[in-house]
């Protein structure tokens, strides 16, 4: 621990992280700044922005139509995320306990090899009026005329869940796989039912996987718009659709950017919420520790 020796030992940490810093600055921070900057500029009539400060893009958001988009975005994203996680948890659990883990993993990943739009069209051909389901139902005489299976909330949420299930299963699988399953036996041994063992021992121990799965699902869902366009109706449009329309239809870039900023804030609210609950947990543990030390 002599002085000169310590000084000779250089800290190369900054050098190692430099490429990452450059990468983030170029591809993340700069576009982000452009988005924020452009949202405070005035719109040019044929797209693009004028170099003039304006908050018109933001004030223009205070309309009932936009408010409805916010509401749609939040509840559809929340509902889809909740259903996705509830379905992914048992899937990931059985995959992690299975003897054919690799096989199941491949089966889960295979749909990824097909383009996202193609998969939505595949769903369309299942749900549409002369699609697979209706053909079967009419074929066996269960219904006389085709059922309306697309262009409703259920169809949008179904396809959202289908799309993000893999993103939720993968982080859950990788944490549950590391879980020591004898802990479940121990819990049952100590008086817990199977269900209590899962909720009181498994879930708290795979918390990090659940948080990751929620983010992998909820955040991309907030910005989604393709499913609503292809399977939903105009009534089901979300902020993503409005951004898309502002860029390509209305050529109103600042409004598109203002919406993007609003969307980011929305995503960050979720992030802060989770981080606060994590900190709160740490704090109560700390408090308990102090209590016990005093006792």
């Amino acid at each position: 621990m002599s002085g000169p020796k310590r000084r000779r030992k250089r800290n190369y940490g900054t050098i190692y992280t430099l490429p990452l810093v450059v990468w983030f600055t170029l591809f993340f921070l700069v576009p982000l700044l452009i988005i924020v900057l452009f949202s405070f500029l005035a719109a040019d009539i044929d797209g693009g922005v004028l170099p003039r400060f304006s908050i018109a893009a933001f004030t223009g958001l205070a309309k009932p139509r936009i408010l409805k988009l916010f509401v749609n975005t939040i509840w559809v994203s929340l509902a889809s995320t909740a259903i996705t996680i509830l379905m992914a948890l048992p899937c990931a659990y059985f995959m992690a306990r299975s003897k054919n883990k690799t096989m199941l993993l491949i089966l889960v990943i295979i749909p990824f090899w097909t383009n996202f739009i193609i998969r939505i069209f595949a769903w369309k051909s299942i749900l549409e009026a002369n699609g697979v389901i209706n053909s079967v139902l009419m074929g066996i005489g269960l219904v006389a005329s085709p059922l309306q299976l697309e262009h409703n909330w259920a169809a949008v949420i179904l396809i959202n869940v289908y799309t993000y299930l893999t993103y939720a299963i993968l982080p859950l699988f990788s944490t549950i796989e590391k879980f020591d399953f004898t802990l479940l036996e121990a819990a049952q041994d100590l008086g817990a039912t199977k269900m209590q063992a899962i909720t009181k021992v498994l879930l708290p121990n795979v918390r990090s996987g659940i948080v990751t799965a929620v983010f992998f699902t909820f955040i991309p869902l907030l910005g989604s718009f393709v499913v609503q366009q292809l399977i939903g109706t105009k009534d089901m449009y979300m902020l993503g659709n409005e951004i898309n329309d502002n860029i390509y239809k209305y050529f109103d870039w600042p409004t598109a950017y203002a919406l993007a900023v609003a969307l980011m804030m929305l995503a960050n609210v979720g992030l802060v919420f989770v981080m606060m609950s994590e900190r709160k947990q740490a704090r109560t543990l700390g408090a308990r520790r102090v209590d016990e030390a005093a006792a």
Partner: peptide
């Protein structure tokens, strides 16, 4: 009877302590 209904408790070979709980909460778990 399922394990939770038997008047037998086990000390597992690898201890099987709950990592997310304190010593106090581990013992309080039952």
């Amino acid at each position: 009877l399922p394990p939770n209904m038997r008047h037998a408790n086990t000390v597992f070979q690898n201890y099987a302590l709950f990592p997310h709980l304190t010593v106090y909460e581990n013992v309080a778990f039952p």
